[in-house]
């Protein structure tokens, strides 16, 4: 077992060093798909998280609980449900999006929505409520006051977004069910790992995993650098 892992590490270094075109292609696709999904999801999830975190309305804790539950949604289940939706005989089949990179973006964006919403809501709740009242006393509007609080908790929000990117790029179920793992079109890092493992190419599977982890690591370093900079 250890030798297989070592072999995988060596193979990973070889592939990376040689700039293997297939590896580059798959890696860029993974980055593009999961990056877009993260940004897309942020567009609706951060406002939703702010709404839940700062809002005062009936059923707020129920709402929050719902998103916490959705955090545990198995990716295969989501993939299956979305497959039925986007399948040609499904309700959105006419869009002909199945087996395209775009539909993986949509699927992953939905998958990570609860991650961002929960993280953001929890971070905002932790901010000193005085800041918000102070802003309001100083004549800020509701939105302006929320932005002030959001600004105070920027670290937490960044963490939410990074964590959701990590979840997106490392998930398999959605990419496999919606994308179909088509060579040169929808093959991403995780589906390659699954395929190569099925094919008995253990070293190659591990090499891909090393690449995946390196990306996640790199992104996290960049984000923490950016955080310091802010």
């Amino acid at each position: 077992m250890v030798s297989a892992i070592l072999e995988g590490l060596v193979k990973a270094l070889e592939l990376i060093a040689s700039g293997d075109p297939t590896l580059v292609d798959i890696t860029l696709r993974s980055l593009a798909i999961s990056g877009l999904a993260t940004i897309l999801a942020s567009c609706w999830s951060i406002p939703l998280g702010v709404f839940i975190g700062l809002g005062k309305f009936r059923g707020r804790s129920l709402f929050k609980g719902l998103f916490n539950v959705l955090l545990g949604l198995p990716t295969v289940t989501l993939g299956l449900v979305l497959y039925l939706v986007f399948s040609r005989s499904g309700p959105l089949g006419f869009l002909q999006l199945l087996y395209t990179p775009s539909v993986i973006v949509i699927g992953q964006a939905i998958l990570i929505t609860p991650v961002i919403v929960s993280f953001v809501a929890n971070t905002l709740e932790a901010v000193d409520p005085e800041i918000r009242s102070l802003a309001l006393t100083l004549g800020a509007s509701e939105v302006r006051a929320s932005l002030t609080v959001l600004n105070e908790s920027l670290n937490g929000v960044l963490l939410a977004v990074t964590a959701s990117f990590n979840r997106a790029i490392a998930e398999l179920g959605v990419a496999l069910m919606l994308g179909g793992n088509i060579r040169g079109a929808t093959r991403v890092l995780t589906t390659t790992i699954a395929l190569e493992t099925n094919r008995g190419q253990i070293a190659l599977g591990i090499a891909m995993a090393v690449v995946l982890l390196s990306i996640v690591g790199l992104v996290n370093i960049l984000v923490s650098q950016a955080r310091r900079w802010i």
Binding site: L28, R29, A32, I33, L36, I39, P101, A185
Partner: peptide, 12 residues
């Protein structure tokens, strides 16, 4: 995002 989107369209 723009670059990523461009790449996606290309890779199709």
């Amino acid at each position: 995002v723009a670059l990523g989107g461009f790449y996606l369209i290309q890779s199709m």
